[in-house]
């Protein structure tokens, strides 16, 4: 990151905003995928019913 003293240049600000936006988006995508995984997991348990764990070892 290039700074002149403590003052950030316009390019730095833009780069920082870009990084922040990408970070927010990555978190959004991660949360979306996590939600999808949870949905599929829960729906599978519901569809299989309460006997899902009741099987011979």
């Amino acid at each position: 990151m290039t700074t002149i003293g403590t003052v950030m240049t316009g390019e730095d600000k833009s780069e920082e905003q870009r990084a922040q936006k990408q970070r927010t988006r990555s978190i959004g995508i991660a949360l979306g995928l996590a939600l999808l995984v949870v949905l599929f997991y829960v729906a599978t348990l519901v569809r299989l019913g309460p006997d899902v764990l009741n099987r011979p070892i």
Partner: peptide, 14 residues
């Protein structure tokens, strides 16, 4: 700053 790409979108925008 005209001409400078600004990345402002938030989750609210989506």
């Amino acid at each position: 700053e005209a001409g400078t790409p600004v990345f402002e979108s938030s989750l609210t925008d989506f």
